[in-house]
Nucleic acid binder design. Structure first.
Length: 492
RNA sequence: GGUCCGGUAGCUCAGCUGGAUAGAGCAUCAGCCUUCUAAGCUGAGGGUCAUUGGUUCGAAUCCAAUCCGGAUCACCA
C-alpha cells in the first residue's frame, strides 16, 4: 500500500508543492557524520510529507566555489605532483579532502614562521604565501582564467564521483541539484534590482548592504566592495530560482542550527525584496552532532567520516549475524544485502530517533547498539512476523468476531494510531515521531508474541484474527522504516 | 555584552499547547529457549525533572531571576 493510502482524510496542506533542500556538501572534503544526520533527516522529512499528500521535490545545493575549494586546489598544485584519485587508488572526495588538510598544515607552518619573525598572528594568517596564492586563485576563478577553471572542473569532478558513490550507498537521492557556481550570478542580479528599489544601499567603498536594525538585527553585507558575492548573495538567487522553476508553496531548508541567524536574515531580505517565495522559506534547523570527545573539527582530524561509519556499521551487522548463525543458507549476495540493510537501518534509526532540533552526542567508542530502541529491533520483529506468515495460510474470508484479549487489543489500538503519527511527524517535520511509534508498536507485538501463539491458537477463529494482526503490524513496521529510509529484511 | 537554544535515572534520550504513582533504551541484578527466529520476553534497583521564587485547585511542563553548557552576532561558507 502507498503511504498516502494509509492516512485517513487529508492533510490540511495536502496537495501543496514543497521543496526540501538538504545535504549541501562542500566540494573540498568528503561527507561526515553531520552530513549523514542532515541527509537522513531531509530525505525522511521529504518522504513523510509525500506520504501525507504533498507534492515534494528533493533538492541539493552544492557548494562548489569559494576560498575553501581554492585551498584544496592550491595544495594539490603544490604537493600532488600530478597525482589523481586513479593513480592513488583513492575515492575522489577523500583524495581532494587530503589536500584540504595539507593546505591547513602548510598554512599553519607558514604562520608559525611569520610569527617567529615578529608578525602578529592575525597578519600572518593573511600574509602567508599559500594564503596569498589562494586569494589570487579565487580572483582568477571569478575572472574565468582557463587554467584555473580547468583544474577546478577536474577536481570537482573527482569529488562528484566520490559523492555519487556515497549517496548511492546511503540511499540518498535528489530531484534537482543546484550549484552555487550558477546561483551566485542570479543573486548578484537580484542585488542590483534591490539597489534600484532602495532595499539595499551602497557604501562609499562600493560594498552593498541592507539595514536590518529595525528588525532587531544588524546591517548585513550582500556584496563585497570588489563586487564579488558572499554566501547570502547566492542564497537569495537560489530562493528565486527555486520558485521560478517549481512554483513551490513551501521551501524547507535542512540546515544546521549554527546558521539560524543566516536563515533569519535570508528570509527577511527575501521579504523586503518582494521575492515571491519569501514567506515560504522555512528553516528546518537541526542540532549539531557532537562527539563525546568534543566537537568535530576537520582540521584536527576529529571528524567521523561518513563512508567509514557506514562501513563500520555494516561490518558490525555482519559480526552479529554470523554469531547468531540464523541465515547460513543465504547466498553471498543475499548476505551482503542483509548486512547492508541491518547496518544502515541501525545507523539511520539511531540518527533519526531523536528530536532533530536538538544537538546530539555520538560516542564513536561505543558502537551503535543493535538491541532495544534501534533499527535492528524493528527489523527483527518484522522478520519474525514474516517467518510465521510463511508457514501459515491465511484465510482472508474468515469472519472474525471473536473478542480481543489484552495483548491483541493493544496491537490494534497501536496500529490505528499510525495515520495520526504521520500527520504529526509531517506537521512537526520530525521523523523521530515515526521512529518512536514503530518501536513501540514492535515492542507491543513482541510482548504479544511471547504471550500468545499464532500457529497454535486456541481456535481457528483466534488464529485468523492473530494472523490479521501480525499482517497489519508487519505492514506498518515496513512502511514506517521506509519513511526513515531503512529497509526491512524478510529474514535475519 | 546582545540574541537564540539546551540542563529530566550512571549514560543516551522521550515527556514540555499544565492533570493521577515522571517514561524508554543502554548499563547493573534476577528469571525465561524439547512449542511460531532469545537481535526477543518478564521482573528488580536507580530521578529533589539545574537552583530559587512566582502564577495555579494542580507545575518537569507557564512566568521571572540565577547558575552551568552550546550556537550566533565575519567583506567565511
Amino acid at each position: 500500500k502507498n503511504y498516502a493510502d494509509i492516512c485517513y482524510g487529508k492533510h490540511p496542506l495536502n496537495g501543496k508543492k514543497v521543496m526540501v533542500e538538504y545535504s549541501s556538501p562542500n566540494t573540498n572534503k568528503p561527507l561526515h557524520l553531520g552530513h549523514l544526520r542532515n541527509n537522513f533527516l531531509g530525505w525522511s522529512v521529504a518522504e513523510i510529507l509525500k506520504a501525507c499528500g504533498y507534492e515534494v521535490y528533493k533538492s541539493c545545493i552544492v557548494n562548489d566555489r569559494g576560498v575553501h575549494i581554492c585551498k584544496s586546489m592550491i595544495a594539490w598544485q603544490l604537493f600532488a605532483n600530478g597525482a589523481t584519485p586513479k593513480t592513488n587508488n583513492t575515492k575522489g572526495d577523500h583524495f581532494v579532502g587530503e589536500y584540504y588538510v595539507k593546505f591547513n598544515d602548510e598554512h599553519k607552518r607558514q604562520i608559525a614562521a611569520l610569527v617567529a619573525i615578529g608578525i602578529t598572528e592575525k597578519e600572518a594568517e593573511k600574509e602567508a604565501p599559500i594564503m596569498k596564492a589562494t586569494q589570487q586563485m579565487l580572483q582568477d576563478w571569478e575572472s574565468g582564467k582557463p587554467a584555473v577553471m580547468k583544474l577546478w572542473k577536474e577536481m570537482n569532478g573527482w569529488v562528484y564521483e566520490g559523492f555519487e558513490v556515497t549517496y548511492k550507498n546511503i540511499g540518498s537521492d535528489f530531484d534537482k541539484t543546484y550549484y552555487e557556481s550558477n546561483t551566485y550570478l542570479l543573486g548578484k542580479e537580484i542585488v542590483q534590482l534591490g539597489l534600484d528599489k532602495n532595499v539595499f544601499y551602497k557604501k562609499e567603498d562600493g560594498s552593498v548592504w541592507i539595514d536590518l536594525t529595525s528588525d532587531g538585527l544588524d546591517e548585513k553585507l550582500v556584496l563585497r566592495k570588489d563586487g564579488t558575492s558572499v554566501y547570502i548573495t547566492q542564497d537569495i538567487g537560489l530562493a528565486q530560482q527555486k520558485y521560478d522553476e517549481y512554483q513551490i508553496d513551501e521551501s524547507i531548508y535542512v540546515i544546521g542550527d549554527e546558521q539560524n541567524y543566516h536563515m533569519k536574515v535570508l528570509k527577511l531580505i527575501a521579504q523586503k525584496l518582494g521575492v515571491s517565495s519569501a514567506d515560504a522559506i522555512h528553516h528546518l534547523s537541526y542540532g549539531m552532532v557532537e562527539l563525546t570527545t568534543g566537537k568535530m573539527k576537520s582540521r584536527e582530524g576529529t571528524v567521523v567520516d561518513a563512508d567509514d561509519l557506514v562501513e563500520e556499521m555494516i561490518n558490525t551487522s555482519r559480526k552479529h549475524t554470523e554469531e547468531l548463525g540464523k541465515v547460513k543458507d543465504f547466498t553471498e549476495e543475499e548476505l551482503v544485502e542483509l548486512y547492508k540493510t541491518i547496518g544502515l537501518g541501525a545507523l539511520k534509526f539511531y540518527l533519526l530517533r531523536v528530536d532533530p532540533k536538538k544537538r546530539m552526542i555520538f560516542n564513536p567508542e561505543e558502537s551503535i547498539d543493535f538491541h532495544g530502541f534501534t533499527g535492528p529491533f524493528v527489523q527483527y520483529t518484522y522478520a519474525r512476523i514474516k517467518s510465521i506468515l510463511r508457514k501459515i495460510t491465511a484465510d482472508n474470508k474468515a469472519a472474525i468476531s471473536t473478542s480481543l484479549l489484552k495483548n491483541e487489543k493493544e496491537i490494534l489500538v497501536a496500529a490505528e494510531q499510525f495515520p495520526a503519527v504521520l500527520m504529526e511527524a509531517a506537521k512537526e517535520l520530525d521523523p523521530s515521531k515515526v521512529a518512536v511509534y514503530i518501536f513501540n508498536l514492535a515492542k507491543t507485538f513482541n510482548s504479544f508474541y511471547a504471550e500468545l501463539s499464532i500457529a497454535n491458537a486456541e481456535s481457528e477463529e483466534k488464529k485468523q484474527l492473530r494472523i490479521q494482526l501480525a499482517m497489519i503490524t508487519s505492514n506498518i513496521l515496513k512502511s514506517g522504516m521506509q519513511l526513515l529510509g531503512a529497509a526491512v529484511p524478510e529474514r535475519m
